[in-house]
Design a protein around this nucleic acid. Sequence first.
DNA 1: ACCTGAACACCGTTCAAGT
DNA 2: ACCTGAACACCGTTCAAGT
Lengths: 202, 202
Amino acid sequence: MNDEPKRYHHGDLRRALLDAALDVLAEGQGWKFTLREIARRAGVSHTAAYKHFPDKAALLSELAAIGFERLRTDLDAALSNRSQASADSFVAMARAYVGFGLSNPNLYRLMFSADARQRANVRRDDRGEAALDILIEFIEMGQRSGWLREGDAREFAGAGWAHLHGLTLLMIDDLLAPKVGPNACEAAIAVLLEGLIASPQK
Amino acid sequence: MNDEPKRYHHGDLRRALLDAALDVLAEGQGWKFTLREIARRAGVSHTAAYKHFPDKAALLSELAAIGFERLRTDLDAALSNRSQASADSFVAMARAYVGFGLSNPNLYRLMFSADARQRANVRRDDRGEAALDILIEFIEMGQRSGWLREGDAREFAGAGWAHLHGLTLLMIDDLLAPKVGPNACEAAIAVLLEGLIASPQK
DNA sequence: ACCTGAACACCGTTCAAGT
DNA sequence: ACCTGAACACCGTTCAAGT
């Protein structure tokens, strides 16, 4: 397919560097990689990256943005094909969140690492907290339907995000299964759901 | 007090290195520090550390162990002076957990970093998941008293730990306050509590 | 037994120079 | 406009040598 062998100018080195980094994250152990290795994989000198990213932190920040975008895609997919906000769709979304972390452990850790975040202050609203936005919208719908507790939807969403974030990280690090058992993840999601639904008597 | 100036032999260099590292964590931005800087602070050659730690990861692992110990101390302190497991004492413990993270952000991140954990496989039961053990015990008591929902205490504790862990990290990174508001932390703790207490009608 | 100094391989980053 | 090569400051780690 790619019939042009190797030219001096790469074409889209920026994209190639990002893809190489995503590959390393997908294979690798840990989210720490070297800029020189990425350049090596892209078949380019290790200084070429600096024409496309001011420094390594900028590359990490861009990778984090890609990760947040993919996470949002996964969450949206879990919620689509479901008519409205129900307990089932909440559980599906929660599973999708944790599932994203377990499928992309290194990327997920990178997304919340200090290195990636130090430059993410720019336009962090439109992507970083996408999960939070989705949760807010979901909870507002659930409250209108009456099955979610009344109260500040943003605060409930924050609690939900915190719960799913911590659960995802503990699952990635395999810190729950040894002592809690194989049902740790499902049980944790159930506790969160229970904390958000309206009390039956109120 | 310390009337002996500087000897060739340090005395307790191991402890001095750990203290210097804890100082850097307490001051510093980020939990990344250099072994050479720690040695510099301890007033010693940068190769001296290798007589006390096999490598940098071992130092990090030891620091993480110290952090888990301090966290347990804080949680125990929050639960002491309280006659028994009540909703109030649960909230106090939850606040102590998040408070520990906010007071020691770099140490808390280090405790759950891959670098510190790669060597922590040894004797990780007796310290790493101390918070989980405390939660399990607390929940078992609350269940006996009847105000906590019936079910697998270890699973509830796992859910609680996940919730507090995620909340702590999001608070450290200041990811909740901007969009959720100043009550984000208290609200999240309330949601967790709601998810664990027994339904009033059951 | 404990620490130092030189050395090695490596990394992020810069910059003059090539195409 | 885009990439390379040499160079710089730095780091983790090793090891022979000092006290």
